[in-house]
Computed example of a mutant assay.
Amino acid sequence: MLSDLHLHSFNSDGEATYSELIQRAKALGLDAVSLTDHDTFGGVRDFLDECQKQNLKAISGIEISAFKDAEIHILGYNIDPEADNPVNRELGNLARARVKRIKMILDKLKKLNILISYDEILQYYKTRSVSRTHIANLMVLKGYVKTKAEAFELYLSPNRPAFVDFYYFAPQEAVDIINQSGGVPVLAHPFRINLDKTDLKDLVKRLADAGLKGIESYYPTHSNDTINFCKKLAEKYNLINTNGSDTHNIYDNLITNFETEQKTIEVLGLR
């Protein structure tokens, strides 16, 4: 089985529509996919329904932002996106915190004579979850900066004049609420976390003790050595190895090893 279990759409910081993600999956010959937008289930039901119409296996997904010494993302699979469960209850708090943060960033930009409104972002991007990426893209379109990278470098990154910190779950808390909601928690792109190997090993141990079920071992920027390092950790703590491209639009051309391990297929119900 071939799968891509880490996709983003316009509902968070991606640009792709459901149709574009499905067309991409078909073109790559994938058998299964998961939409894992940041801190929102917005659109997941529609995506699952559209995949079913296109005879493409799909499972629900989300990527939850967490923080403990570094920003850490936890993927959650097979959670009912519409049920009254701990994840959905906490997402309400997170959504309100996200809106407050974005408006604070926009207020800071306004004082720097960069004029972008919250409603303007919603109107332009039709997103359910506004992020700094949307602000950066609009800054480019309005001529305030030349590139998205420049927007982050000059204004939106930590220690820059428009940066505002964000409310995060502790990673163990994210793992716990995913488990409480009947889901499968997986550590996303472990080598994008700003930790050395010793600290990463310690993180995986602590998360495994808290109920972590998998590691995203197969990822576009992971070398063979990195993949093997992750797989050894997964074996040590009886975790599944998942594979995801982290695609945000169909032009990303992000490719990973889409071959899905049998244990992963069974745990995630991808048969």
Score class of each variant (00 low, 15 high):
M1T: 06
M1P: 05
L2K: 14
S9D: 14
F10T: 07
N11W: 12
D13L: 11
A16Y: 10
S19T: 15
R24S: 11
A27G: 13
V33H: 12
S34K: 07
S34D: 08
L35I: 14
T36G: 12
H38R: 09
D39G: 12
T40W: 11
F41P: 10
G43Y: 05
G43A: 08
V44S: 09
F47A: 14
L56G: 06
K57N: 12
I62N: 05
K68S: 15
D69E: 15
I72G: 10
L75K: 05
Y77N: 06
Y77G: 03
I79G: 00
I79K: 00
P81M: 04
N85S: 08
P86R: 03
R89I: 07
L91V: 08
N93T: 15
L94W: 11
A95K: 15
A95M: 12
R98L: 09
R98N: 13
I102E: 12
D107K: 15
D107V: 11
D107N: 13
K108W: 07
L109P: 05
K110I: 05
N113R: 12
I114G: 01
I116W: 03
Y118S: 04
E120R: 06
T127G: 10
I135P: 00
I135M: 01
L138C: 03
L138P: 00
L138S: 00
V140E: 01
V140M: 00
K142S: 02
K142Y: 01
G143M: 06
Y144Q: 02
Y144A: 00
T147I: 05
K148E: 09
E150R: 06
F152I: 02
Y155A: 03
P161M: 06
A162C: 03
D165S: 15
F169G: 11
P171V: 09
A174Y: 02
A174W: 01
D176K: 13
Q180C: 03
G182M: 01
P185Y: 05
P185N: 02
H189A: 13
P190W: 05
F191S: 02
K197Y: 07
T198V: 10
T198P: 02
L203V: 10
V204F: 01
V204M: 01
K205M: 04
K205R: 06
A208S: 15
E216V: 05
E216L: 04
E216K: 05
S217P: 05
S217E: 02
H222Q: 07
N224L: 03
T226F: 08
N228A: 11
F229P: 01
K231Q: 08
K232W: 00
K232M: 03
Y237I: 04
N238L: 06
L239D: 08
I240D: 01
T242C: 03
S245A: 13
N249D: 15
I250Q: 12
D252H: 09
I255N: 01
F258P: 05
L270I: 11
R271K: 14
R271S: 14
